[in-house]
Design a protein around this nucleic acid. Sequence first.
DNA 1: CTGAAAGCGCTAACAT
DNA 2: ATGTTAGCGCTTTCAG
Lengths: 365, 365
Amino acid sequence: MKPVTVYDIAREANVSVATVSRVLNNTAPVKASTRERIMGLIQKHQFQPNALARSLIKKETGMIGIILPDITNPFFPEVLAGLEQEARNNGYTFFLCDTGSSNQDIKAQYQRESQYLNILMEKQVDGIIMIGGRIDLARCSKEMAKEVAEVNKRLPVVLINGNLPGAKFHRVIIDEVAGGVLATEHLIGLGHTDIAFIGGYKQMSNTVQRLEGYTKAMQQAGLQIREDWIITGGFTVEAGKVFMNQLLGGETENRPTAIVCANDLSAIGAIKAAVKHGLRVPEDMSIIGFDDIPLAANVIPELTTISLKCLELGRTAAHILHQLIGKNGIDTLTVLQPELVVRESTAPLRVGISISAAGNVSSQG
Amino acid sequence: MKPVTVYDIAREANVSVATVSRVLNNTAPVKASTRERIMGLIQKHQFQPNALARSLIKKETGMIGIILPDITNPFFPEVLAGLEQEARNNGYTFFLCDTGSSNQDIKAQYQRESQYLNILMEKQVDGIIMIGGRIDLARCSKEMAKEVAEVNKRLPVVLINGNLPGAKFHRVIIDEVAGGVLATEHLIGLGHTDIAFIGGYKQMSNTVQRLEGYTKAMQQAGLQIREDWIITGGFTVEAGKVFMNQLLGGETENRPTAIVCANDLSAIGAIKAAVKHGLRVPEDMSIIGFDDIPLAANVIPELTTISLKCLELGRTAAHILHQLIGKNGIDTLTVLQPELVVRESTAPLRVGISISAAGNVSSQG
DNA sequence: CTGAAAGCGCTAACAT
DNA sequence: ATGTTAGCGCTTTCAG
């Protein structure tokens, strides 16, 4: 059965397509009686206007694209939820573009970003939101950055928690440095002085910034920063385990008593590895994460962490994009402040015990 | 700057739009020299064909819609990843339609499902995938079911892990009953006889079926099923805690030694509650989950669970949908088999200890 | 191998 | 208040 069109409705109602269109869009007054008649037919035939045809002429589709690296990483669904919430209210629909960073080489991922950028433009989306991927790079290549800049000339693009060189973008970001400071000062406040930093990637700006916050807080407190206590190379649970093992691998009488992790996932890995080493968290070792994914509240022990306000990040981005669409807004930068969420994985330093006693336990047992 | 069209290219290349279209789609032989000339112009102007116009006439959009209840529940991103993987290879793009079950009343959720169903049709998607929501209902209302049936007449719909009365649908499901049996038999195999079942909703078919598997395995082993040891009412971590507290609330000398949970999240809640009660998992209490979300491998202790093969579920659904699009395939039913994943949260029954000793500890301390 | 022309389903002037 | 008509940007016969 072929779909019914405005023409079918018009014919049966003895009116012109224009009139049908008018009742459809409430774009001009229509006599009550004919309006009713048309409405009836619409009901009767379950008529649904073809959004493609409509968009073709109106030059707006009510669709926005979101490009992200890995939907499987719980951080992203959280900001997605925020996006959805806000965008739904404004009548937008979402293209989800997962570039699948998890199981591919990094080159393929960036390629897929480019690919999606093109597809989205062809599909005439009203705007694009990017999060993760190339925009997280501390030094993104000129070409990759330019590509996005070109897109940004044609339609609004907003970057979440990232940036690209060579052009101004609309962005909504969290103050990562402040987050790093917050986390580190929390630990310092608990009496810790031997504090390590693990997780993330040195090439990524978020890691660099979190690390910068860590460094800043340490220096401000007059504490020593040991290069071998800063280990990066991954955001996963697995990576967290590896880093922690590395930290605990050497002479155990000389290990940190507290750890700032670049994200929650690696913090969880760190906890698991610590436990395997016979250490108790937080009694023998304090661990703080970054992100505040839902999971953070559900592991045992519950994770103390820095909330990145994922939901708010998403909502704000959607809001800004909505403002931008249609209007030629100027470049926008919104900075959200992170928040310390104290739960169970951090505790005051237990003087005299932490390093020798607990450390030895782990090395002997 | 207004977008360039095939006409612009045609004019500059001194050919007709037909020829441009031909090189764009490789739909007829074009002289090499003119082809090159056109390709050059396309490059030069960064020309991108308008997918709306193209779809309008070709009657296919390369878009498919996925309607799900809550992207924030880690089960769904997992199947989404599977969908994406498969669909991307076939050139599809995704509409993500989150009906936001998490923070709204249930009525609103179903309403939003209807709404999205309509939007997706208007946008002319090539197919729709549904998971969760109304299709999980053990007894879905006639109207809600019919609505989907109507959609299914116009374009392919595939249901993941659910069903709707009154019509045949293409479905890909996991054998939930088998999963329930698997979980329960695992516990029985470890020597447990006092086994409870918690989590899920009695109104949802997945819960009913998992429970059916539990019952079946218990009866087959000649074990008694206590009505007060079957508690339903939620899938969240919070719900799991509540149920476990309820189980442990009464006389502690009379508590189960093992628990089948309706999903991983509630299992995690159960573990947390048990630990709060002074019980050790798995030493004093074995707990098994359902789903095998990534998180399951990352909690402490790592969760023994029933894998629902989320990724495969997603991939299969996308594959089937692809087959269906264009062709008038007959109704399809694919059943995947669940799998037991043994990790750390289950252990052999410790005779004589589990009930009295551990139970008393919890009641006294 | 290439061009002219007729739509796809809808909206928006411009008439009446 | 309603009808006529010209497109939106593309594909696709049908002719050459």
